[in-house]
Design a protein around this nucleic acid. Structure first.
Lengths: 145, 145
DNA sequence: TATTGTTATACTCTATAACTATA
DNA sequence: TATAGTTATAGAGTATAACAATA
């Protein structure tokens, strides 16, 4: 046998553990970028969701949390001038949450800083980028990701 | 031009957004598995770290949080009989946190349930497994992952 | 002097339940 | 009746500061 044995492919459990490490690192870096602007992780996540004006209810659904939590988080973001509550002309029960200009700026700063911590992404070739996207989208059953 | 244009490879920003989705899905599933045993996300994470007995201080470092937080979380896990505080014979300042038998069982149950939500992993071939591991370990700079 | 762990404090996040305004 | 959002409440996570015990 002169052939070189390739390294064993990782098991599902090993991949799960690696995914846990990566998910933890992602949130650690996200929280750091948010904290640099005086925001908590949840406040930063909330801002990141507001690419378009959205009802409080939708934000609760996206965060998979109770609607009552959103009230407090939006309260604090509004007090800091990062978001606004606007009336929905079509349904007066609904309040649309909108980013202010400072809110937009803050989101962009957080995303830019996070992107620098993900420097490894820039070095990937086209094939790796396609594969990575396919793998990331495919590991959780439809609807869970 | 009769050739088929391949789909454009995702940009770094698109991959970052996909990673955010996947990280969120991971913790959502983890929290669900922990909640099924009456545990919070942090309590579940703490148990998962205890593959070996560890000083409180090490747990704080691994969770990237202040040491004072660990006291409360371990208090609640100890009150439920899932962990024990043991003296370190070599350094009496240190308390080693150890899983009880029920704690071990609980960790294994959570991991098993989480693995079923990651059913997509089982379908990956050897090449995809190697690539996925390489990509997950490479996107954060050394020390941040 | 430095380190480990705890306590006290204040703030944030979280789910539950009850409430209002609107549909 | 049902839905959107708020309030009140209690429990959990979080950082800061101060402390006791040990190194």
């Amino acid at each position: 046998m002169t052939s070189i044995t390739p390294p064993a492919a990782p098991t599902s459990v090993e991949l799960m553990d690696q995914l846990a490490q990566t998910a933890a690192a992602y949130y650690r870096n996200f929280a750091t970028a948010a904290a640099a602007r005086g925001l908590t992780l949840m406040q930063g996540k909330m801002l990141s969701l507001l690419r378009r004006p959205m009802p409080m209810r939708s934000l609760a659904d996206l965060l998979a949390c109770d609607a009552s939590n959103v009230t407090g988080i939006i309260d604090r973001l509004e007090a800091r001038g990062l978001v606004r509550r606007e009336a929905d002309p079509a349904d007066r029960r609904i309040k649309r949450v909108t980013l202010t200009e400072e809110g937009e700026r803050t989101v962009q700063e957080i995303r830019a800083e996070l992107l620098t911590t993900l420097s490894g992404l820039d070095d990937l070739g086209e094939q790796d980028r396609r594969t990575f996207q396919r793998l990331l989208t495919g590991i959780f059953p439809a609807g869970a990701a």
